[in-house]
Design a protein around this nucleic acid. Structure first.
Lengths: 224, 224
DNA sequence: GTGAAACCTCAAGATTTCATCAAGAGAGTT
DNA sequence: AACTCTCTTGATGAAATCTTGAGGTTTCAC
């Protein structure tokens, strides 16, 4: 599910957390000191960091600032102090969330899920098949690094075929997905657009590279 | 600073929070019931929602789910229950953070800052793309160091496009974000404002520098 | 093989979408 | 009241895209 890095000096807690998170499907790695943790975060690039305050070698808030200067990985702070004072400082220092010790595994797991959900927002959706790739948000298609100039219907057709790469997609489905029903147009129209798409992909129906027609059924996109 | 909507049935707490947040530079509006709050969130589009549990007309978690289904506004839940159980449920239901009642104004303020920072992650107070930069707080846009004289709608359009640099933004989205729904206006209006913005950016649709129109879809802002 | 059905491609006309200008309304200011 | 700034709307021409018809090619079943 996610790779978690735990910075915590108490070996017993490390063991407990690692066990609980592993059971929840996460992969846990840990450091026993602040400086060690900082290095590991830089080198391992975990998805989430769980940072225990009260480390022997460095103040937690200080480490948090250092982490923030090198990475924007979500950080969940575990603290024994329950007063407003310190939590305010931590959130301002860049913590994404915190749990109060002693914390339950369920609670930590919920926090991890929450920060991951937040972090995964806005990731670019890109599809790849062979030397073909499309970025849906940017509405760009690249072939061997070259930007393709596709018309709207062509792009949507390609997107549909890439989303279902390897599967045969019927023209009826293309009409439904790209043209949106109810549509009075004929399937000839799809043929024409497919032809244009092929031309831009540097192929022809007789010499297919990506778009294989399956006679009587439809078309499937495959890696060359 | 930020527009906060407080959903809370206790008038005294509403008064206290509104006062404290106003002192911190935020603008606070409030509702006394769940259904009222839901409607106001939809119509007013606040930057943060502070939701009190234990409302008379609806369970807080239920309202949270309803909120989430219509908006991704950050929600801070205020709860009297301090047990792991309920906080886990709330975070899973989509809460961004929570405070335990009675909470201090400083604490709530820190949470608000934290969720705002998170919500604006990747879109800090100043945005840059190529030689273009805008300072959202100061409402200033600079091109190659030169201050641009933009009308309100132009600035907001530019801000939206810069926040989503590289992504295609549709005119419908621009209407929703910049003009605020429900809006009867036509998409031609957007075209005109885009044209003005282009002129001030020293470009034209035929010779784009930053604003690329993606025919049939929308416009995206890219570095030249 | 042979014929029917399905498919491919081209070219031209039809349609949709865009960019820009210009006129006018409304709000706020001088 | 005249002025400025901003926004909305309609018009116009241009550009990009889509659809359709027609002719040729391939595939499949018999």
């Amino acid at each position: 599910m996610a790779r978690i890095h735990l910075i915590e000096d108490d070996a017993e807690i490390r063991r407990l957390v690692a066990g609980a998170m592993a059971r929840a499907g996460h992969e846990v790695d840990s450091s026993a000191s602040a400086m060690d943790g900082l290095q590991r975060v830089i080198s391992d690039r975990p998805d989430v960091v769980v940072l225990d305050l009260g480390l022997p070698d460095l103040d937690g808030a200080e480490l948090l600032r250092m982490l923030r200067s090198v990475s924007d990985v979500p950080v969940i702070v575990a603290t024994a102090r329950d007063d407003d004072e310190s939590t305010v400082k931590l959130l301002d220092a860049g913590a994404d969330d915190y749990v109060v010790k002693p914390y339950s595994a369920e609670n930590l797991e919920a926090r991890v899920r929450a920060v991951l959900r937040r972090a995964s927002d806005g990731k670019p959706a890109t599809l790849q098949v062979g030397g073909l790739s499309i970025d849906i948000a940017a509405r760009e298609a690249h072939l061997e690094g070259e930007l393709l100039d596709l018309a709207p219907k062509e792009f949507e057709l390609l997107q549909l075929l890439m989303e279902r790469a390897g599967e045969v997609v019927s023209k009826r489905e293309m009409l439904a997905e790209v043209w949106r029903e109810p549509y009075g147009g004929s399937e000839r129209t799809v043929d024409v657009h497919l032809s244009w798409l092929r031309k831009k992909l540097g192929e022809t129906a007789a010499e297919p590279r990506f778009l294989q027609t399956v006679h009587g059924v439809g078309v499937k996109l495959v890696a060359p």
